[in-house]
């Protein structure tokens, strides 16, 4: 007894003798870092490549035919804007995405919810979708052209095919993840089966649905560009292809840049809308 007491008192003396670093490091597994540090790193991730770009191009080290200078690119963007091509291409691309994505959401959300809620709906659609979704979408392009030609319906169909089969499965999963106890609670509160479906299951899926749409619209951009690169005479994908044909590296970069900005903007819209549309939902991913 006496010895153990001794040891304890020695420890008590020893602890304050060790100086402790209080400053949190930037490399702590899963820990937050100061906001300032985060923003600095994020800004650097853009500024460093841009600085490198400026250095390589203005110093003449890079081949101007492959990598144009920022000034060059800016003037190309202005030129495209004044020609009216840029705005027209953006408009047509955004329209295609909008229609293709809406079409797949309008079908995938109700069907996915049915698949998640009822095993017979799952059996009717899930194995089929599971097969189709492993067919790479570009492999469908010839078929799409045979069926829908090369006009607007073809591009919209391709965006639809690219997003629908993924979306319907994710929506089914979102629905299955609604806690069973939530549905049970409703039933013991007197809800009949339809009331459980409409008053509990549907609202419970909303945060997951919004999140799914956010992911899927990203996919839609991918298939849009595939569609526009293959066969079309308008849209941002076409603008990039045309620039390639005329060896206009500056215009290629403008097209890529605008696609990136539009993608980012759609994502931001979802990110900002989520807490406003569903203030009750637990915080979602960034």
């Amino acid at each position: 007894m006496a010895t153990s007491l001794n040891i304890q008192s020695q420890k008590a003396v020893a602890i304050p003798a060790v100086p402790r670093k209080r400053k949190p490091g930037l490399f702590q597994l899963g820990e937050d870092i100061p906001r300032g540090a985060y923003l600095t790193i994020a800004a650097a991730s853009f500024l460093i490549p841009i600085a490198l770009w400026c250095f390589l191009t203005y110093s003449g080290r890079a081949n101007a035919l492959i990598l144009p200078t920022p000034t060059h690119m800016m003037s190309a963007a202005l030129e495209m804007y004044h020609d009216g091509d840029l705005m027209a291409d953006m408009k047509i691309s955004v329209t295609r995405i909008g229609i293709g994505f809406l079409l797949s959401a309008v079908l995938a959300i109700p069907l996915g919810i049915l698949m998640g809620a009822y095993k017979c709906a799952e059996a009717a659609h899930e194995p089929f979708v599971g097969f189709i979704r492993y067919v790479p979408v570009p492999a469908l392009i010839p078929l799409v052209m045979v069926i829908a030609g090369i006009d607007e319906p073809a591009k919209i169909l391709l965006i639809f095919l690219g997003t629908y089969f993924q979306m319907v499965l994710v929506v089914a999963d979102v629905t299955r993840q609604v806690p069973k106890d939530l549905l049970n609670a409703a039933r013991t509160l007197g809800s009949n089966r339809l009331q459980v479906l409409f008053n509990v299951l549907l609202p419970a899926t909303l945060p997951g649905l919004l999140d799914t749409c956010r992911t899927m619209i990203g996919w839609a951009w991918t298939y849009l560009v595939i569609a526009e690169v293959v066969a079309t005479s308008s849209g941002l994908g076409y603008a990039i292809m045309k620039a390639q044909r005329f060896s206009r590296a500056d215009e290629i970069f403008v097209g890529i840049f605008i696609l990136g900005l539009l993608g980012l903007a759609t994502d931001m819209v979802f990110k900002i809308a989520q807490p406003r549309l569903l203030p009750w939902a637990e915080a979602q991913r960034n």
Partner: peptide, 19 residues
């Protein structure tokens, strides 16, 4: 089957988050 005359309270939190 279930019915409103038998109220239930579960161990898991089952409040409806949107209400």
């Amino acid at each position: 089957g279930p019915g409103a005359e038998r109220g239930m309270v579960f161990q898991a939190y089952t409040l409806f988050p949107w209400l």
